[in-house]
């Protein structure tokens, strides 16, 4: 057994010890995970974004336009100084404004047109009719410009039925994905670490 497997197994057991109750072993693993994760993201973000998109263009290619995001990025640190903290709003405004501008056509294409197109299939099959009915009734539930009475109320109620099916299915799927991870960890402990199963 190599050192990596041994350490991974010990840390896995530390975390599973939480199933008994909160204890120092779990806390150790928890804090270590937080520290390592932050360190990992710092290194990866700087090496894959800041260096190739800011440092190299400015210092190697002399592209001074790239100084703009550098300065705006620096403004973010001014949040620690109350008198200058407002400057960080400019950087936030750029991210939020540009993000909003990008998201409008993207949402239109991916969330609205693509989903509508997929729902308008051939109505020869019963499943396609159910899909169309579910999409329309679900949407009607989110129509708040009129009181949910009469036809709209009935449609909204049917929509709630389909949404409950969706929430139940999503819950079941989430449980199963966590169970899959649990099986993976058990396989690791019993196989790679203890060698009981192959």
């Amino acid at each position: 057994m190599d050192l990596g497997t041994l350490i991974a197994a010990i840390l896995t057991l530390f975390i599973f010890s939480f199933l008994y109750k909160d204890n120092p072993f779990y806390k150790f693993a928890e804090y270590l995970l937080v520290g390592i994760s932050v360190g990992y993201f710092i290194v990866i973000s700087i090496k894959t974004t800041v260096v190739p998109k800011l440092i190299f263009p400015v210092f190697r290619e002399g592209d001074l336009l790239c100084l703009i995001p550098g300065i705006l990025g620096f403004f973010m640190f001014l949040r620690f100084f109350p008198k200058l903290a407002w400057l960080s709003r400019i950087s936030m405004a750029l991210i939020i404004g540009a993000g909003a501008g990008v998201s409008i056509p993207a949402m239109m294409q991916a969330q609205i047109f693509a989903q509508m197109k997929a729902s308008m299939g051939s109505y020869a099959s019963i499943n396609n009719i159910i899909v169309a009915l579910a999409v329309i009734t679900t949407l009607s539930y989110f129509f708040f410009s009129r009181e949910h009475k009469g036809a709209l109320g009935t449609s909204a109620k049917i929509g709630v039925f389909f949404m409950m099916l969706f929430f139940g299915a999503t819950f079941g799927y989430t449980v199963m994905s966590r169970v899959t991870l649990l099986i993976g960890r058990a396989q690791f402990l019993l196989g790679d670490f203890l060698g009981i199963i192959k």
Binding site: A110, A134, V135, G159, L165
Partner: peptide
């Protein structure tokens, strides 16, 4: 049904 309701919710989110 679940996929259809998901579509309705996605259109709403969009």
């Amino acid at each position: 049904p679940s996929m259809a309701a998901r579509r309705g919710i996605l259109i709403g989110i969009g």
